[in-house]
Simulated assay, not measured.
Amino acid sequence: MTAAHRRRLGARHLILVALLALLGSAGAFAAVTGSASAHPSPSPRVTDPTDSHAHGGPSPADFADIRRARPDARPPLNQPSASTGTFTARCGRNENGHRNPDNFIVTPGVRNGAHHLHDYVGNLSTDAFSTDDSLRAAGTTCARGDKSAYFWPVLRLTGTEPGPEGNDDGGNSGRVLTPDSVALTFRGSPTAKVTAMPEGLRAITGDAKAFTNGAGGANGSKDAKDARARWSCTGFADRHLTDKYPLCPRGSSVVRLLDFPSCWDGRHTDSAGHRTHLVFPDAATGRCGRGFTPVPQLRMELTYSVPRGPSFAVDSFPEQLRKPVTDHADFADAMPAGLMATVVRCVNEGRRCG
């Protein structure tokens, strides 16, 4: 081999070494800067159906065994003047799949104003643009001509493929569950007779933003005053959870219990914030405050069949991470006056009607 040939081989070797060094530097640069173009890292593997990175929450810590929950506090005792009857509105369980991410009470006229999907029963037209007039003109799934709007966030199976409704942009993924049963019951007061709700009354219960408002949020607060929704399992009617989803024993279904405020100011059908015209009675006595009168209290009880384990979550705003404490529901009264009169009579006379 001639000297010239050896020099050419040496030069090629130096060029190869330089190229390898340059590629090594690029890899190091990518490692430092996180550049996806240099060495893309593999997608994270989801091993838990409630992994917050994949679904925006919840976490396994948001679930608790219902058998370990403390018994509920005793309700106020009925006084001689109590109204002890009930009226059950029979409206189905949303078998027709009426759902949208609107809320005409809180964000009227805004499409996707809720940023999470609602189940509706009752009025067939309910959407972002609903008004008293449009509700009055529409059809209903309820018996006896009740055109009221009843709605709540859907419950989904986490870690599953969505159905026709799809996922949404708030991190709410999974297949939507239709409730096994929906009980809409109007109840009385432990201290007084009730009066009729005014047509067009708006009511909300629970706090859709309870997590960032303090219930389990960064400030460590254990509750939020408007977080009213409760969770349980069939067979455990004496115990409920507010800030945990229930883990039910075999053969038991998940229960969502949503009680609405029932003390009306006697003048307004809605208010700023939607909470001051219709308020809750005193928790200890069941009595309405001064200037308020009791109206029939709506209770929604929703049951679901779910796989055992932490496999489900309620839809929520993105920043609420699908926490159970954010569960809530809405109601707009559009009952015919005659039907509302029947509700009041049944409740005040201690009868069971529906």
Score class of each variant (00 low, 15 high):
293 T>A: 08
112 N>E: 12
253 S>I: 04
76 P>E: 11
55 H>N: 14
181 S>H: 14
165 E>N: 15
90 R>T: 13
296 P>N: 15
93 R>S: 08
55 H>P: 01
75 P>R: 11
42 P>E: 07
276 T>N: 14
271 S>A: 10
60 P>F: 00
291 G>H: 04
184 L>W: 10
334 A>G: 11
302 L>F: 02
310 P>M: 11
306 V>N: 05
6 R>Y: 02
317 F>G: 05
291 G>F: 03
178 T>F: 11
46 V>L: 08
249 P>W: 04
182 V>L: 08
60 P>V: 05
138 A>K: 02
88 T>K: 08
253 S>G: 06
228 R>C: 03
302 L>R: 03
108 P>W: 08
275 R>Y: 10
217 G>N: 09
329 A>M: 00
255 V>H: 02
9 L>I: 00
230 R>N: 01
159 G>L: 09
23 L>F: 05
270 D>E: 11
98 H>G: 05
230 R>T: 14
215 A>K: 04
216 G>E: 05
307 P>M: 07
110 V>W: 12
198 P>E: 07
350 G>L: 14
322 R>A: 15
182 V>K: 03
350 G>V: 09
125 S>F: 08
354 G>T: 14
303 T>R: 12
205 T>D: 06
287 R>M: 02
162 P>V: 09
109 G>D: 07
202 R>D: 12
47 T>N: 10
121 V>W: 02
22 L>Y: 03
335 M>D: 06
275 R>T: 15
71 P>M: 03
116 H>P: 00
336 P>G: 07
74 R>V: 13
331 F>A: 00
43 S>P: 15
130 S>E: 12
32 V>Q: 11
237 A>M: 00
92 G>I: 03
286 G>W: 01
73 A>Y: 04
102 D>V: 06
290 R>C: 00
80 P>S: 13
203 A>W: 05
148 S>K: 04
105 I>P: 01
303 T>V: 07
125 S>C: 10
349 E>G: 12
63 F>W: 13
345 R>N: 09
95 E>M: 06
33 T>C: 09
239 R>W: 05
